[in-house]
Design a protein around this nucleic acid. Structure first.
Lengths: 341, 341
DNA sequence: CTTAGCACTCTCCGCCCTAGAGTGCTAAAA
DNA sequence: TTTTAGCACTCTAGGGCGGAGAGTGCTAAG
């Protein structure tokens, strides 16, 4: 199972060359450009072995070799050099977050932007999942005579608002309803909102059953909706058009088509989790339309909690080391930017 | 300048056929499929005339004819039949807005969606420009000890929020600052916020100069930002990949590239204005990368005021009558959905 | 175990050629 | 005067062919 040192170097050389040129790699090329100290014939033998082991593929008999999914997998697991970003690049990423954006949405959009600009791949960012963090603050503010805004703030510092309609009632009634509701809502965690509050509200506001129902209903559905239909942001979608393997419009259509479907993007990036950078290659991706691609993802955190995901999406022939470095750095910078938020 | 009836019918037939097939149209085709009662030879003569007049073009000597920009323009201005949507289609669009979405963002996204799904072109929607409408309501709500949320509602019914940091101060001070500010903000129009309020705040809150400054600064910049960087939503971007004239990836890149630039999209759709549906064809579009496209746009309104724009973007070979009908209908439905909002 | 040599395979590219579509022109018919 | 039939001409798309080039695998020698 474990390859000889020379086989590893040959595999690495092939991947390196293929990633750079998108052309199948021949034994001559390897011998010439990478100083392995052996002749093309020897390399040919090694390549034949590597192909038999499943690390390489041949588009057709007299073409060079191309890495297989398994080849890439071996590369990222054991061959890939740890890449450090230059300090200019780190600085460039930092600079994106230097200006203290006030709105979360802007921060997320900037993140999609910096990711795609730094990698030349497609970037994908999921907004923070709000429902998984507790609510720190809920308050209802009357707005005109027939509406009210419910302000929410999560423990992780995200503020949201939600408009609800109020049924007709007198100003005094309104005052009282809102007062009671606010008392009930104050400082509640979302999970706890249910039973106790509802019972209490019903008791105190039995005349306004419908308000309470609408209110709790929309609060709940908006917070649930915030999870399921969580905003998906993408950047640099046109970058894929620069990749030679996507010169065929049909392939582009498949990939971009997936990105328009929120559900599939969630599946692609996976749930926020604490573990480190994840690399998924070709057929390892469950989504059929994406199996010519690879994706490098990471979670970002607030207060130590992973609450969202970012990633870059490119051809399998991806500059993995660089992608990993960028995604890692951006995830860190984003977490910091949201931290004191 | 004005064409003979027969020339008009020939032009219409050519556009009809070309829109349907994307193939240059020959005289035989016209004679066969459109009953003009004359022979191909006659039609050839008419076509030669129409070409000389600039309504048609010839890709090469022995191909059929293709409508020129001028040809399309003539078509949409004077030839195009008024198309009514079927009642199923109208219903389909209505259905999108039936469920009373609470959040403006959702409504806008649905709009982009229904537009692209109903036309099979790319849809573009600009969020409502907030700064052009007055503020009806501004209120500051404290959030924890060091932050506050400013709630805003425009006269047109859009609610927004904005987080600001507060400098350290005692609870009593905070209470007082927020009280004074709220009194000052209450019911203000944005334009009036300037002078009077600032002077008053300075007087009453001279000790908290920095709060006031930060607050007004961020309020202002957020509302201005809301205009300039106004959200751009697109839908069905992959639809363009189905168009035969965009089988070349380079062309796709140009078009999609423009859509990633907020500024250019604003230029493409133009400012909200009261006039009706606008059709812009090929070179009439100022943006170089878009000159193989046409765009059909309209404004949507709240309380009679045009506050935002929607549109569909497709190849010049567009089903104009249908696009116009859909855009019109969606603009109306969107306006209604926002109306009582 | 490595390497040189060599025959073999396969694709890519340019070339030629034909078929087909469509035109414009001319001259006859209406 | 307008329309139409006929015809020569033009241009493209697509198929077939052949050679160049890249790369392989095998064999036999170092």
């Amino acid at each position: 199972m474990t390859l000889t040192e020379r086989k590893r170097r040959v595999l690495e050389a092939i991947i390196d060359s293929y990633v750079a040129t998108a052309e199948p790699v021949g034994s001559r090329t390897i011998a010439r450009k990478y100083r392995l100290g052996v002749s093309p014939a020897t390399i040919r033998n090694e390549m034949a072995d590597l192909e038999e082991l499943g690390y390489l593929e041949q588009p057709h008999t007299s073409a060079g070799r191309v890495p297989s999914d398994k080849g890439y997998r071996y590369y990222v697991d054991t061959l890939m050099p740890m890449k450090r970003l230059t300090s200019e690049e780190v600085e460039r990423i930092r600079a994106f977050y230097r200006q203290r954006y006030r709105e979360m949405e802007t921060i997320i959009q900037q993140t999609a932007r910096v990711l795609s600009e730094s990698t030349d791949y497609i970037s994908v960012v999921l907004g923070p999942g709000l429902s998984q963090t507790g609510l720190r603050f809920v308050q209802m503010v009357p707005l005109g005579t027939d509406k009210a805004v419910i302000l929410t703030a999560t423990e992780t510092g995200f503020v949201g608002h939600l408009t609800v309609n109020l049924p007709p009632m007198s100003p005094e009634e309104r005052e009282r309803v809102i007062g009671v509701i606010n008392e009930g809502l104050q400082g509640q965690r979302l999970e706890d909102l249910g039973r106790g509050l509802i019972r209490r509200l019903y008791r105190e506001l039995s005349a306004f059953r419908s308000v309470v129902e609408e209110l709790l209903g929309s609060l709940q559905s908006s917070l649930e909706g915030a999870e399921e239909g969580e905003r998906v942001y993408t950047g640099g979608t046109t970058n894929i058009l620069n990749q030679p393997e996507f010169r065929d419009v049909e392939k582009v259509k498949m990939v971009l088509g997936v990105l328009e479907q929120t559900r599939l993007v969630h599946e692609l990036l996976g749930p926020p989790r604490s573990s480190e950078i994840t690399i998924t290659i070709g057929k390892e991706i469950q989504i059929k339309e994406m199996q010519d691609c690879s994706v490098v993802t990471a979670s970002y955190r607030v207060a130590g909690q992973p609450i969202g995901r970012i990633g870059v999406l490119g051809p399998k022939r991806m500059r993995y080391a660089r992608a990993v470095a960028v995604v890692e750095q951006v995830a860190r910078a984003l977490s910091e930017a949201l931290g004191p938020g």
